[in-house]
């Protein structure tokens, strides 16, 4: 009986987190369109529901009922597997994100504000985000189309290049908190915003944010799907549900990297001032994530796309050395302060 209750509790945790994340993904597309159109002085989606609020629902239904086309020359197995290989790693990372502080109880059953707290949480997220590159690469290859292949190759090169500085930027917070667990890392930043690692690790934060944009293939680093030269990059040949999987994965990845940034640099669910502790921690977490997501969309509306060789040179010649120097300096300072 205990075992059954345990399993039910775990399933409820996963269902709640997945439900919340997928709802956010759907409305992130809406938010992106609305914010972009606001910045470009137009209205954006207005027809479906008040102010177009039901637009994501309509889009989802449309994609669901669209004809599913597999190109004649495609490798059918890998073509079908690639969207799943992209989406699963994007969603699986949310298992270790601590969304709030307090667990609540129904009877004697504990519901924690995270699915699990493993002591290598950060490495877990990095490990699965690196698997996501396979889906993009294989999707591009299996489509048997030159645009898709070029998009997949570009994406793989970009993801491999920017993974290194991304991981090295996260070493700073890990060194300071002395833990890879995202829960412990959040707790180490308590007691006011001057304890957040964005204050002590500003360089690492900037490196992380830039690399995170490159990792999620967003503008200005969206070379893999640069529409003016590659049609739609690695998902040129995809349609219907399979296309929507790639789409979902991109937005889920955006939310995931924002969550990691919030935990590692912005104090997770900690309030900026001790006096503001009466507001529930989950509110602070969401507010910080929304701010970073807005920042992403803002950037998309502002910055033009880079050229591919500039992007690679920037990753290897500027970001990587900078991240290494940051790790070195942080270790030295930490050693002498102890």
């Amino acid at each position: 009986m205990d075992l059954i209750i345990q399993i039910v509790v775990i399933v409820v945790h996963i269902a709640v987190v997945l439900g919340v994340v997928l709802t956010h993904v759907a409305y992130l597309t809406y938010a992106e369109r609305k914010i972009l159109s606001d910045m470009q002085d137009r209205l954006g989606p207005m027809e479906v529901g008040p102010h177009g609020l039901l637009q994501p629902l309509a889009d989802g239904l449309k994609l669901f009922f669209k004809e599913d086309i597999i190109p004649a020359g495609a490798n059918k197995i890998i073509f079908s597997a690639a969207p799943i290989l992209v989406l699963v790693p994007a969603l699986i990372g949310f298992a270790v994100v601590p969304f709030g502080r307090d667990s609540f109880f129904i009877g004697s059953i504990e519901f924690t504000p995270y699915i699990t707290d493993i002591n290598i949480g950060l490495l877990y997220v990095l490990a699965f985000s690196s698997i996501g590159a396979y889906g993009i690469l294989l999707g591009g290859w299996a489509s048997n189309s030159k645009y898709a292949l070029l998009g997949g190759l570009r994406s793989a090169a970009q993801v491999i290049s920017y993974e290194l500085p991304l991981g090295l930027a996260l070493v700073g917070p890990v060194l300071l908190s002395g833990s890879l667990s995202m829960k412990t890392m959040t707790e180490a930043q308590g007691g006011g915003f001057w304890h957040w690692y964005v204050i002590t690790q500003p360089v690492a934060f900037v490196i992380y944010m830039i690399c995170a944009i490159a990792e999620t293939n967003r503008l200005p680093f969206d070379m893999p799907e640069a529409e003016s030269e590659l049609v739609a990059g690695f998902f040129t040949e995809y349609s219907g549900m399979r296309f929507s999987f790639f789409f979902l994965a991109e937005y889920a990845n955006m939310i995931l990297v924002s969550c990691v940034a919030v935990v590692a640099f912005l104090g997770g669910w900690q309030a900026p001032l001790a006096a503001l502790d009466f507001i529930p921690p989950i509110f602070w977490f969401l507010a910080k994530v929304y701010f970073l997501l807005f920042f992403y969309i803002w950037l998309r509306a502002t910055v033009p796309r880079l050229r591919f060789d500039q992007l690679m040179a920037f990753g290897w010649k500027i970001m990587l050395p900078l991240a290494l120097v940051n790790v070195l300096l942080t270790s030295i300072v930490k050693y002498f302060l102890n």
């Binding site: 490495l123 877990y124 990095l126 690196s130 590159a133 396979y134 690469l137 793989a156 991981g167």
Partner: peptide, 17 residues
């Protein structure tokens, strides 16, 4: 975690590339 990051995430991706 290192096994997945290094072998699956870096070395094998380069091979597939």
């Amino acid at each position: 975690a290192v096994q997945i990051i290094v072998y699956a995430g870096a070395i094998l991706v380069t091979y597939v590339f």
